[in-house]
Design a protein around this nucleic acid. Structure first.
Lengths: 336, 336
DNA sequence: CTAACAATGGAGAACGTTCTACACAATCCT
DNA sequence: AGGATTGTGTAGAACGTTCTCCATTGTTAG
């Protein structure tokens, strides 16, 4: 009455069997007769028994998967979550999210906390930890890393093909007739390698080279302000670009503001493209050309890989998701 | 070597004391000498010991707080999270988020899962459960409910004063000279009482009445599409409103699109206001007048109340946060 | 008919903590 | 001096599971 919690012992008493037998039934383990099965199942239903995850943790699984979020404000993070939970919806696994913050230190604290809570596996979204830290986490628990290129042997990885995505944008703009295409990227702060913005910038450079064009990369930050500042600088030049490809939609919004303030009309005077295809990009008022990553597929894939890992696979896998270009109103042929 | 995990017994052996003593030091409990304190602390540091939360759960606290999110896409949910984690940053508590989904059933599953994982307390953000379900959760674990009016004795509550917020908008519009002000609300689907949209609609009605004006409420949904559809219907009328107050910014964006398509200029032909002050409302391209809820304060308050509850307070508390009106470019005097 | 075996159920030892109860020593009061 | 009190440390029983044996059945093969 004090705790009120129904335990396996209560069920065993009710069904007139041992706790071991109940445990077997609950886990679907080998060695239970049909009769035992029904008896116990009935007792469980009558009492409303639910296994106590913490107690389970001491011996076996917790059926809890952790997803560490580096940035809660990243607009397609809900897509990834939905992909993960959707995939796991009909399994016994539960998903809990851990806000890891932007700093390597706070992220490490979060992953430690998740390990301490004996989660069965972790999905890390764009972690900003060193490779060594990442490897350390991966030895303690199965790990899938999302959004970071160049995965290691210790963990699985799911990445968007950012090189391809950047290429799609450049190809599109070149196809429209642009030659002066600038790229706004995010200034590298951490030691971590293979982060999306780096790879997108590299993909942009490759694609420009492939078209025989000179590249023009400016590093500010992936914020509205960063896009604004970057665009203001680019647009002040004598030979200002006719198109700006921002490495993230949020920065592209800043670019649009800069264009507004400079009295340039989009797309006639300036074409603008982003990356991520965030929800508002599709709003008619914005109508931003962008690269869609299909966070849903990314999340579902990460969940699948993680469960596979937990259930025994040891060979490491890297899955690459192909982005698609969504052409909208902010890109068009340059004014001659 | 197999598990690799450092346990309290390892620390005790290293320091040459009992496990009970180590436990006392770790918990900061009464009855440890200074000498013992340093000896044990040193051993902990040397071995890199971290308490195993699941094992703790079986006896005492887990130092884990759960935040159930009803809607991961809600744009000010990151603000609330930051408020919560910010408040808890220097305590021993860890915050984990649980995506509860929109359905009462999935939300119940989530809260159950959190209870099964012996979290010390739960913050429920706009839960769509019945009062009975809510009460049941609250008997199992300390609970703070956010964003739902009319809290019960069993749990604490933090709410935005939605009546006041709606009043601010109406007062502002009336002050500009508007008399035909329509309101777009969210169609009630669940049984749950006291949800924000209901209260906002009621606040709107009260304020209109106070100004001696006729109210005009249309229920669609709090989505871009819902705002669009609602506005299209309202704008097709003979005596179309000169101002539309949408109960959520996301719907207000739909209203803006409808105005664009109808060839009405904002704010000259139509004033538009929203609620929530989501990030993009401040973008120059949108510049939406809105009501700000200060999710940061809400989150911090919820965290404070929850910790108080966990640490013994039994009297139930409801904290109300005052919203503020952010006037931007989408509202102005009506054209005469 | 008996030995071997498969199928089923149960005992009981973990798992890593917390926490109550107690032992012991040192200090205090009268 | 002797009892009471205070301070400090330890033993050991929980907590609710899982899981490895082991015991007891039937069943089958020879």
């Amino acid at each position: 009455m004090t705790s009120g919690r129904v335990t396996i012992a209560d069920v065993a008493r009710r069904a007139g069997v041992s706790t071991a037998a109940v445990s077997k039934v609950v886990r679907g383990a080998y060695g239970v007769s049909a009769e035992m099965q029904t008896k116990v199942t009935q007792a469980i239903d009558e009492l409303g028994y639910r296994p106590h995850a913490a107690a389970r943790a001491l011996r076996g699984r917790t059926y809890t998967l952790g997803v560490m979020l580096s940035d809660t404000r990243n607009p397609f993070f809900p897509d990834i979550i939905e992909g993960v939970t959707g995939r796991l919806g009909d399994t016994e696994y539960q998903v809990l999210l851990g806000p890891g913050g932007i700093e390597p230190k706070t992220q490490a604290r979060m992953t430690d906390a998740m390990i301490d809570r004996s989660m069965d596996g972790l999905i890390l979204i764009s972690p900003v930890m060193t490779d060594a830290e990442l490897a350390a986490v991966a030895t303690a628990v199965p790990v899938v890393v999302v959004g970071r290129h160049g995965g290691a042997a210790a963990y699985d990885a799911v990445v968007d093909d950012d090189v391809m995505g950047a290429g799609l944008v450049v190809d599109h703009l070149v196809g429209l007739g642009h030659t002066r295409i600038a790229h706004i990227t995010h200034l590298e702060r951490a030691r971590a390698q293979g982060l999306p913005h780096t790879v997108r910038a590299e993909g942009y450079r490759q694609a420009m080279r492939a078209h025989g064009l000179a590249d023009d990369v400016l590093a500010t930050s992936f914020t509205e302000e960063g896009g604004f500042e970057g665009a203001r600088e680019l647009l002040a030049r004598d030979d200002r670009p006719t198109a700006i490809f921002a490495g993230a939609d949020i920065a592209a919004l800043g670019v649009l503001r800069a264009a507004d303030e400079a009295g340039l009309s989009v797309p006639e005077d300036l074409s603008v493209a982003g990356y991520d295809n965030i929800g508002i990009a599709s709003l008619k008022r914005i109508s931003l050309t962008s690269v869609d990553q299909d966070g849903h597929v990314i999340g579902a894939t990460a969940a699948r890989l993680l469960v596979e890992r937990i259930e025994g696979r040891s060979r490491s896998v890297t899955s690459s998701v192909s982005p698609t270009l969504i052409v909208r109103g902010t890109t068009g042929p340059p004014r001659l």
